[in-house]
Simulated assay, not measured.
Amino acid sequence: MRPMLATAADRPPAGREWVHEVKWDGMRVLVDVRDGRVSVTSRTERDVTAAFPELDGLAGTYEDLLLDGEVVALEDGLPSFHALTERMHVTKRRQAERLAGTRPVTLMVFDLLRLFGQDLTGQPWTARRRLLVELDLAGRAWQVPQVHDDGAALLQVTADEGLEGVVSKRRSARYLPGRRSPDWRKVAHRRTYSVVVGGWRAEAGSGASSAGRLGAVLVGLPDGAGGWRYAGRVGSGLAGSAGTALLRRLRRDESDTPPFSDVVPRPDADGTTWVEPRVVVEVRTLMLTADHRLRQPTYLGVRSDLDPAELQEVPHGG
């Protein structure tokens, strides 16, 4: 099963039929608890159980339940996607257990999809929420955050506290697995985008691109016709191990031609090694210009929970 997704909005909807939650800067997951075992899957149905051993304790809560939520990592008291990248790509359990001591994660649970074998997705949000609260899930690595009636007020609070934004949900909404619904709406403060990598350039002065360090990546956004529009060059945030790990992935997908549907300016194209558009990364940017270019973008991390096909649906981030 894939999780239900929210549509982007300019402001939270008003009215008694809506409820509002904090939008966390993390990784969306479904957590399946059954027969004393816990299984964690990403938005793309990838098994990420090994990456988050902190969630094993959910096996001791109830015999059978399926939870929807977001895994977050805190940095200076606030959720940070950049910090989470240290955890979300780990595939070896022993390594994840070591990292859990220095970079712990927390599961923010916001929906209940199955309980004691009963499918709850056809029930309205109010019924699912009531059951979720009654479960009284509270642990060292998981919690059920509060919901709020005033979306505008919550939006201001999240802005003041440096949080990502607000997700608003219609109280009567059923859960639609894998679908993006106007019954869920998201408003984000920070301009972050999920983009596809189409090429890379070596760090200036590091020698031939085949042997050099990663200096920048060339990225794209959906062009509306099934292809990719060039969105600019991203160099900030790629120093050290972050760039080394990304370059290792990109070298598997090198190509002779650029994947973009428009022409890449010569200053950016010269010296670029093109790659197949298979790796999705998250970037933060000052703005997206009128010609769909990222202004002063910073690399945050690889989005292994997204594949390029999902970006064709939604050009503005995860």
Rank of each mutant, 00 (worst) to 15 (best):
V263R: 15
V19E: 10
W200K: 02
E86V: 08
D47A: 09
T244L: 10
E254Y: 05
D10I: 02
A50P: 05
V264F: 06
V283Y: 06
P222L: 04
S168H: 13
K92E: 11
V275N: 03
R130G: 08
E161W: 15
G227R: 05
D68S: 11
V22W: 03
R179S: 15
A138E: 13
P297S: 04
T298P: 01
Q146Y: 13
S181P: 00
T192K: 01
D268T: 10
Q156S: 13
R28Q: 08
A83M: 08
R179N: 13
G227I: 06
L135T: 11
S236V: 13
P267D: 09
K92R: 13
G317V: 04
R43H: 09
A208L: 13
W228N: 03
V31I: 08
G122C: 07
G198N: 03
A239Y: 00
H316G: 12
V275Y: 02
L132T: 04
A211I: 09
S181I: 05
T272V: 14
M4R: 00
A242R: 15
W142T: 04
T61L: 11
D291V: 11
V48D: 02
E276P: 00
G15T: 08
G77V: 04
P12V: 04
R37L: 08
V90Y: 02
D76G: 12
K169S: 07
H89I: 09
P315M: 07
P259A: 09
W24N: 01
P308E: 06
D10L: 11
G165I: 07
W200S: 01
T7W: 14
R170T: 07
R185L: 12
F260W: 15
L238W: 05
W142C: 04
D149G: 09
G69Y: 00
T285F: 03
A245W: 00
P277H: 04
A8H: 15
M27D: 03
D262V: 06
R191M: 11
T106V: 15
R43F: 07
L294P: 03
Q296V: 06
Q143D: 14
V147N: 13
S42A: 12
Q143M: 13
D76Y: 12
R185W: 00
L300S: 01
T61Q: 15
H316C: 07
V133Y: 14
G151K: 02
G232T: 03
G117Q: 10
L115C: 03
D150P: 00
V263E: 15
L120D: 09
A127T: 09
R2Y: 11
G36D: 02
V166I: 12
R37K: 14
E45V: 06
D256S: 12
L30V: 10
D150S: 06
E70F: 08
G139P: 15
R266F: 07
L65E: 00
R303M: 07
P267C: 10
E75N: 11
R266G: 04
G227Q: 05
G57N: 10
A204P: 10
V147W: 13
Q156T: 14
E97S: 03
L288F: 08
